[in-house]
């Protein structure tokens, strides 16, 4: 059962990812990205990360994607603004090869070390991934980073207002 769910949603996530980078229209890309984020949220549930899965849907698939769609509609793009000459085939192939080289190198390093892959029975502990569990970890062990996050958000808000403001002169 779990295997079937994993493979179905992994395939959906990959299909969504491929659609994000292949559609011409940003709105179609945004909706494909929602598909990927939602499938990832299902995989989080499989990994017993229930609270994080809810956060993923609320914040990522909800707020961030609304922000994208809102911007696309706010810009009121003309159809010629969406026409781009694509990069050369040689550039595309070499970009893909370079990325595969880097990712493959790090993946091979990880798999050579073996890490602690394969045993998944460790975490059947009490409260793993629930609101209480994540909250306890967040507010006891990581209180300072959590507070610093608010400064980051404040800086982002001020930055956005300054950048997007209409210049009057």
């Amino acid at each position: 059962m779990e295997t079937v769910v994993f493979y179905v949603f992994a395939a959906l996530a990959l299909a969504g990812g491929l659609m994000v980078i292949s559609f011409k229209n940003p709105v179609s890309s945004a909706l494909s990205l929602v598909l990927t984020l939602f499938s990832t949220a299902v995989l989080f549930v499989l990994l017993l990360a229930h609270f994080v899965a809810v956060i993923q849907i609320l914040v990522y698939a909800g707020a961030i994607m609304i922000l994208f769609l809102f911007t696309v509609m706010f810009l009121n793009l003309k159809s010629e603004a969406l026409k781009f000459e694509s990069k050369h085939l040689g550039f595309k192939v070499s970009a893909l090869l370079v990325i595969l080289l880097f990712v493959g190198y790090f993946a091979s390093l990880g798999f050579k070390k073996g890490l602690f892959l394969s045993n998944t029975s460790v975490s059947e502990m009490e409260g793993f991934g629930t609101v209480q569990g994540v909250g306890t970890t967040l507010f006891l062990d990581y209180l300072l980073p959590f507070e610093l996050t608010s400064i980051l958000i404040l800086v982002a808000i001020i930055g956005v207002v300054v950048i997007a403001k209409k210049r009057s002169n």
């Binding site: 990360a49 045993n119 460790v122 994540v134 970890t137 967040l138």
Partner: peptide, 19 residues
């Protein structure tokens, strides 16, 4: 995080969403 049974990964993921 699931493999090691440690919930620090969840906290880090929440930070990552914020960023």
């Amino acid at each position: 995080s699931r493999a090691s049974g440690d919930m620090t990964g969840h906290v880090f993921m929440i930070m990552s969403i914020t960023v």
